[in-house]
């Protein structure tokens, strides 16, 4: 199918909410659609070329770089951004673990780190192996150098999410620092 020259209407399910918009042209990336058109500025633009990971979101449950995806190509998709992770005031276990383990400094790469960590845990490939976590998180640059805390946070969140009696939210995670 070909789109009209007047614009490209698309609908995305963002953080569980259906959001419709008309793109004036097809070159709008998913990241710019979120940031500039849906006012979801949590996802960050660090390089705009898939080289830093700050824009990481879940696309149909899978972590990707939103800067290297055309919004129009993902019409109908389900997107989870950092804004959609917490349950009201209750932080997601990964978010809570990042706070507890000081997995950030300036915070600019943090939404991407956290979405990447959520994706990594879902992928189930790294488990509780710190080396696999480090490798799996290497698509997210942190110029402040918070990698040690990030790795600890991902491992702690993984443990919390896989504990048999996990409670909603992350506040009960014991500090392992």
């Amino acid at each position: 199918m070909s789109f009209p020259e007047t614009g490209f209407p698309i609908t995305l399910t963002v953080n569980g909410e259906s959001r419709s918009l008309v793109l004036e042209d097809a070159r709008v990336t998913l990241l710019d659609a979120l940031r500039e058109r849906l006012d979801l500025t949590g996802s960050k633009k660090g390089c705009d070329r898939g080289q830093c990971g700050a824009c990481t979101v879940l696309l149909d449950g899978v972590r990707i770089n939103a800067c290297l995806a055309l919004a129009v190509s993902h019409d109908g998709a389900s997107i989870t951004t950092i804004e959609g992770l917490a349950d009201g005031d209750v932080l997601h276990p990964v978010q809570a673990a990042f706070v507890d383990h000081d997995g950030f400094q300036c915070g600019f790469c943090t939404p991407g780190q956290i979405m990447s960590a959520v994706g990594l845990i879902r992928e189930g490939q790294a488990g509780d192996d710190p080396e696999r976590v480090r490798e799996g998180m290497s698509g997210n640059l942190c110029r402040c150098g918070a990698y040690a805390g990030i790795t600890e946070a991902v491992l702690a969140a993984h443990a919390a999410m896989h504990a048999p009696d996990v409670l909603p939210g992350g506040h009960l995670i014991e500090d392992a620092a």
């Binding site: 951004t81 932080l91 706070v99 950030f104 915070g107």
Partner: peptide, 23 residues
Amino acid sequence: QPLTRRDGPAKVTGAARYSADFH
């Protein structure tokens, strides 16, 4: 005291607004 960051919750939820987030 080894307090966690006061700006932590804002930074982990995407609520912390950096310059380019203002429109």
